[in-house]
Design a protein around this nucleic acid. Structure first.
Lengths: 222, 222
DNA sequence: ATAACATTCAATTGATTTATTGATTGTTTT
DNA sequence: AAAACAATCAATAAATCAATTGAATGTTAT
């Protein structure tokens, strides 16, 4: 093989992986899978796709080796193939947020409409955990909490918030987190809590970002 | 705007950026632009695209705000819009190399055909620079060396290698580098040098990776 | 002014991608 | 065995993408 066609096939392979990422529905699916493995039905439900369409997108991701699948009984569970997938996803998220003022504005506008939700970074949270007596609440669906959560966080699914609110203390700082920066579950929870007189803020990013911090950084390809 | 359509537009924006990256020719163009700014003509020439087609791809990259353009006289010079672009490019390269055995095999096969080119990492090079008396040669075209190069590296364009070889010393370890892991200029140079009895190895990655190391790591979006 | 040149634009054609629909496969429950 | 269910497959039509061609724009040199 000559150099020219060698290089072309390299970039072709790289483009195939990138193309598999380059679809809004698949990016949303990957964002969801970053929370842990999910069945096709759950994915379809959470992303408002038909099951057939979700399955089709999952095949694309699978062919690109971005996700792995495992059958348990009559369910197929999908998960991210490895940590590189989430790393690239985050890198693209950072890229999109940095270049494209539109996304940042969309988020800012959304938060502003909700009367200024206070946002804290992971570093801030670590500091607060060491110096203050705070409560961390996980407002994702219970299934996702079970697959993994921030140490000491309480399972606080947003739709059960009313019932559980009595477990909170008005004088403690509450930090709510959810799936990631594009997920609005934490914003909604914070808004509800503030209306009731609690001191609440949201974590800027989500659980997967937090979990990735705790792992050693992988540097090179292999 | 309701949450559903808010999320859809977020992922849409993210997908638009990713789609702009998801084409083999555009990935190759970005790899080239990572060396420094280039004219359309140079890009077309280096990537074997027609000028009109290269220009078209550049428009796509420009619309996605991945590259910036500046006109100097009758030439348009394109460059990467910011460091996030190269970071994402590298992240996708890592992803593709890790998942897709095909790419790694393609590279390995190519290197094996050339009688085992020895490859050293950036960390290795730093150590060697401190402890040994080595020669670092930049085998990219002179234009790219001028735009930036590893400190103390000598400009050694591959097509001039024969003429310049007399400046090398047979007893010193020589390290050749080029554009990146997919670029074969360094491999070719190392092969030629080894045939003539020099001790030569190639740097695993290229100049842009080296330059990115020296800059402070940018963590979050803004 | 004219010619030469670098780049972009516009139109076309063929190839890919996407969502939808309905049928099919394989597993579990009754 | 039959029914219910999860997931995939196959076929289609609409939309988008990519390479080619030739014309148009804008700058520099003569």
């Amino acid at each position: 093989m000559d150099i020219k066609s060698f290089k072309k096939s390299i970039y072709k392979e790289m483009a195939d992986v990138t193309k598999a990422l380059g679809n809004p529905n698949r990016l949303e699916i990957l964002d969801l899978l970053a929370q842990g493995s999910c069945s096709v039905e759950y994915i379809a439900d959470q992303t408002n796709l038909s099951v057939a369409n979700a399955s089709q997108h999952l095949q694309v991701l699978k062919n690109a080796k971005l996700v792995a699948t495992e059958r348990k009984g009559k369910y197929s569970y999908y998960q991210l193939a490895n940590s590189h997938v989430f790393n690239s996803w985050c890198s693209l998220r950072r890229l999109a947020l940095s270049q494209n003022a539109e996304i940042s504005h969309l988020i800012d506008d959304f938060r502003r409409n909700q009367e200024g939700i206070q946002t804290i970074s992971s570093d801030d949270l670590i500091k607060k955990m060491e110096t203050e007596d705070i409560m961390i609440i996980d407002v994702r669906p219970e299934e996702e909490y079970k697959k993994g959560h921030i140490r000491n966080a309480i399972c606080f699914p947003k739709d059960m918030l009313d019932d559980n609110m009595k477990n909170l203390e008005k004088n403690k700082q509450i930090v709510a987190y959810c799936r990631g920066p594009f997920c609005m579950l934490a914003d909604e929870a914070v808004e509800m809590l503030k209306q009731k007189g609690y001191k609440a803020a949201r974590l800027e990013n989500g659980y997967p970002d937090w979990a990735a911090r705790e792992l050693p950084v992988e540097e090179s390809a292999k």
